[in-house]
Computed example of a mutant assay.
Amino acid sequence: MSEDAAPSAIIIGASGGLGRAVADAAGASGRFAVVHRLSRSGTGFDLEDEASIAAAAAEVAKGPAPALVFVATGVLHHGEAPERSYRAMTAEHLLRDYRVNTVGPALAAKHFLPLLPRDRRAVFAALSARVGSIGDNRLGGWHSYRASKAALNMILRNLSIEIARSHPQAVVAGLHPGTVATDLSAPFQKGVAEGRLFDATYSAERLLSVLDGLMPADSGGVFAWDGARVPE
């Protein structure tokens, strides 16, 4: 691909509220030759099925190299409410959150990072959460979700170190979108302070703006919707 050719963007989880908004914003920006919208409902892409991830990557590889890979998936409460106490922990709940929130993005990185161009800036980003911060944890609870997001943050840090050796201009980052008015946050929106419940379009625009401002020196960090770095 020539230096002036428009790159592609890959949005994983593009059928969800925030993922759809990110894909729409990426498309509206005019910066990408194509925006690949990957989702279980839309394209049969399954983040819990590595074969489907590999197949999608092989298809994407036929076109322009991606300048953006955005993993907008996650699970919080589907069938299992966040645990308020250690007494509520179960192996099934812990493993489910790890599969979706940690293993899925890790496998996406395995197959999509090799597609990033080596000679220019490119970004791999995944939705994390402030509650995945160990240093910022003052409340406890939500064991499965917190732990799976903390593990995701470690995966992202590892990826940033390794990819820098072959792709010195690449940025790997986690993103904390705030509380977005989507199905994921629906049971927890009543306690959100006024002005802190964001619609998906606003959150998507903010997150893409944050990514635009990150440099390779920022790679491996987690950043909130307002650009502030989330404590480790």
Results as ranks from 00 to 15, higher is better:
residue 89 M to W: 06
residue 71 V to T: 10
residue 111 H to I: 13
residue 96 R to S: 10
residue 154 M to T: 04
residue 142 W to I: 09
residue 95 L to S: 13
residue 84 R to T: 14
residue 110 K to A: 01
residue 62 K to H: 12
residue 156 L to W: 13
residue 75 V to H: 01
residue 123 V to F: 01
residue 156 L to F: 14
residue 71 V to H: 06
residue 79 G to F: 03
residue 137 N to G: 08
residue 139 L to G: 01
residue 131 V to Y: 08
residue 84 R to L: 12
residue 95 L to R: 15
residue 84 R to E: 14
residue 122 A to F: 03
residue 91 A to H: 08
residue 86 Y to H: 14
residue 143 H to D: 10
residue 156 L to K: 13
residue 85 S to I: 01
residue 102 T to G: 11
residue 146 R to V: 02
residue 153 N to M: 09
residue 69 V to M: 01
residue 74 G to K: 03
residue 115 L to S: 07
residue 144 S to P: 00
residue 148 S to A: 09
residue 91 A to F: 08
residue 100 V to W: 01
residue 88 A to K: 08
residue 155 I to K: 03
residue 87 R to W: 10
residue 99 R to V: 04
residue 141 G to E: 01
residue 97 D to S: 15
residue 85 S to Q: 07
residue 86 Y to Q: 13
residue 61 A to W: 06
residue 110 K to I: 06
residue 139 L to R: 08
residue 114 P to F: 12
residue 106 A to N: 06
residue 84 R to W: 01
residue 140 G to P: 11
residue 119 D to M: 06
residue 152 L to P: 00
residue 66 P to V: 02
residue 66 P to M: 09
residue 134 I to Q: 02
residue 158 N to A: 14
residue 62 K to W: 11
residue 130 R to S: 14
residue 68 L to A: 08
residue 158 N to T: 13
residue 88 A to R: 09
residue 90 T to H: 00
residue 76 L to I: 07
residue 127 L to T: 02
residue 160 S to E: 13
residue 106 A to R: 12
residue 136 D to R: 06
residue 96 R to A: 07
residue 115 L to I: 12
residue 74 G to H: 02
residue 87 R to D: 14
residue 131 V to L: 11
residue 94 L to I: 15
residue 98 Y to M: 15
residue 88 A to E: 15
residue 108 A to W: 02
residue 142 W to P: 09
residue 117 P to I: 05
residue 99 R to E: 14
residue 99 R to A: 11
residue 129 A to I: 00
residue 145 Y to H: 11
residue 88 A to D: 15
residue 74 G to F: 02
residue 128 S to L: 05
residue 61 A to K: 07
residue 85 S to P: 08
residue 105 P to V: 12
residue 65 A to E: 15
residue 155 I to H: 10
residue 62 K to E: 15
residue 117 P to C: 05
residue 63 G to V: 12
residue 139 L to N: 07
residue 76 L to E: 01
residue 106 A to D: 05
residue 157 R to S: 15
residue 95 L to V: 13
residue 68 L to T: 09
residue 75 V to C: 00
residue 114 P to Q: 12
residue 99 R to G: 01
residue 145 Y to S: 04
residue 83 E to W: 03
residue 57 A to D: 04
residue 150 A to P: 02
residue 66 P to D: 07
residue 160 S to M: 15
residue 116 L to K: 10
residue 154 M to S: 05
residue 66 P to C: 10
residue 159 L to G: 04
residue 91 A to V: 12
residue 156 L to I: 12
residue 69 V to K: 00
residue 140 G to K: 02
residue 151 A to R: 01
residue 102 T to D: 13
residue 125 A to V: 00
residue 93 H to T: 11
residue 130 R to C: 03
residue 59 E to W: 01
residue 80 E to H: 12
residue 104 G to Y: 04
residue 123 V to Y: 02
residue 107 L to V: 13
residue 88 A to H: 11
